[in-house]
C-alpha cells in the first residue's frame, strides 16, 4: 500500500505559504507541535538509522570491512541484485502496459482491475511466500505434477525432472516472491499520472501521422519518465529489502538461497552483530539513496508544475 499514499507528491502543488499569516496557532502551540513532531521523528527514524551504522562500526572499520569478505555475504549480495534485476524490469513492463490500457481506454471491469493490481499490497509478506509454496512446493500443484503418474504433458514433466528444476527453496522462488511483493509499485505510480495527463498529446501525434509505437516512444514515454523512475526506485527498494515473503520460499541455504536481509537474520541469530549490522548498513545506504532520489524527483515535479 506504500504507493497508494506516496502518489500525491508527484502531482506537485507548491506548499501553501506559511508563517506569514496573522491567523495561526499561538506560539506555544507551534513550539509544542514542533517539539513533539521532531522527537517522534528522532526516536523512530533518526535513531534506528544511526544505530545501524554505529553498531556496524562498533569494532572499528577493519571488522566492518571484514564482514564483506565472507563469501556467503557476497553471494547474498549477488542474489539480492539478481532478484531485483528480474523483478523490477518485469514489473516495469507490466506497469507501463497496465497504465496504458487503464488510463487511455474505457472498458468494463476497469475499477476491478485497478483493485486487483493493489492486491499484493494488502497481502502479508508471509502469505505472499506461502502461496508460492502452495503452488510450486513439493506438496503443491507443481510438485505433485512432477510426481504424477499420468501427467497431461509428460514431456514437460520429464524435461523438468531431468533438470532438477526446483522453484521453492531455490532461486526462482525467491525471484517470484520478490516479483509478487513489488508487483503494484510502477503501475500504481503511472496510472494516476497518465490519467491526469490525458490523451490529447497522443491524439495530436496521431493526427500528425505518427504510428502507435512512435506515439508511445516519443510522446507518452517522455511525459511519464519521472513517474516511471519514481515507481522504479520504490519498487527496487522493496525488491532488495523484502524479508517475509523471501524468507518463506528461500529455505535459508547459505551461499545459495540467502538474500541480504535473510543473511542479516542468520548473522544476527548467530550473535555475529557486527557482521549483521555491516550487511544492514549496505541496505540502509540503499534506503537513503532511495529517499534522496525520491526527493529529487518530487522536487523536479514541483518545479515543473
Amino acid at each position: 500500500m506504500a504507493a497508494l499514499v506516496t502518489t500525491p507528491p508527484l502531482a506537485g502543488q507548491p506548499p501553501a505559504a506559511a508563517g506569514r499569516r496573522v491567523v495561526r496557532n499561538p506560539a506555544w502551540v507551534r513550539v509544542l507541535f514542533m517539539t513533539v513532531a521532531l522527537l517522534f521523528v528522532a526516536g523512530f527514524l533518526v535513531l534506528p538509522l544511526a544505530a545501524v551504522f554505529a553498531e556496524a562500526l562498533r569494532k572499528g572499520l577493519g571488522a566492518y570491512l571484514d564482514s564483506f569478505r565472507d563469501p556467503d555475504a557476497l553471494s547474498a549480495i549477488r542474489l539480492t541484485l539478481l532478484a531485483a534485476a528480474v523483478a523490477v524490469p518485469a514489473n516495469l513492463v507490466f506497469g507501463v502496459a497496465a497504465s496504458w490500457c487503464i488510463a487511455k481506454f474505457d472498458f468494463r471491469g476497469k475499477s476491478v482491475l485497478i483493485t486487483l493490481i493493489d492486491l499484493p499490497f494488502a497481502v502479508s509478506p508471509v502469505i505472499s511466500g506461502l502461496i508460492y509454496v502452495l503452488v510450486f512446493g513439493a506438496q503443491g500443484w507443481y510438485g505433485q505434477y512432477l510426481d504424477a503418474a499420468d501427467p497431461a504433458l509428460p514431456w514437460l514433466q520429464q524435461w523438468l525432472a531431468a533438470r532438477d528444476f526446483k522453484i521453492i527453496f531455490a532461486v526462482p522462488g525467491i525471484v517470484l516472491a520478490t516479483t509478487f511483493v513489488t508487483f503494484p509499485f510502477v503501475a500504481r505510480e503511472l496510472i494516476p499520472l497518465m490519467q491526469q495527463q490525458g490523451s490529447d498529446e497522443e491524439y495530436a501525434a496521431l493526427t500528425l501521422g505518427a504510428s502507435g509505437w512512435q506515439t508511445f516512444w516519443r510522446i507518452t514515454l517522455p511525459n511519464i519518465k519521472w513517474g516511471l523512475f519514481y515507481g522504479v526506485i520504490l519498487c527496487n527498494a522493496r525488491a532488495m529489502g523484502e524479508f517475509g515473503a523471501v524468507s518463506v520460499v528461500s529455505g535459508h541455504i547459505r551461499g545459495e538461497t540467502n538474500t541480504m536481509p535473510l543473511h542479516v537474520e542468520i548473522l544476527y541469530n548467530e550473535y555475529n552483530f557486527v557482521a549483521a549490522f555491516a550487511v544492514s548498513s549496505l541496505l540502509a545506504l540503499l534506503a537513503l539513496l532511495t529517499l534522496f532520489l525520491k526527493s529529487l524527483v518530487e522536487w523536479r515535479a514541483r518545479k515543473s508544475a
Binding site: 490529447d200 498529446e201 491524439y203 495530436a204 493526427t207 504510428s211
Partner: peptide, 26 residues
C-alpha cells in the same frame, strides 16, 4: 487533416521547433 486542440496539446517536453517538426519527422 490538421487538428488544433482546445488546450493545444503541445508536446510539453519538446521545444516549439521540435513540436512543429514532429509531423515531418515521423
Amino acid at each position: 487533416v490538421g487538428f488544433v486542440f482546445q488546450h493545444y496539446a503541445l508536446f510539453r517536453h519538446m521545444t516549439v521547433f521540435e513540436n512543429v517538426a514532429f509531423g515531418l519527422k515521423v
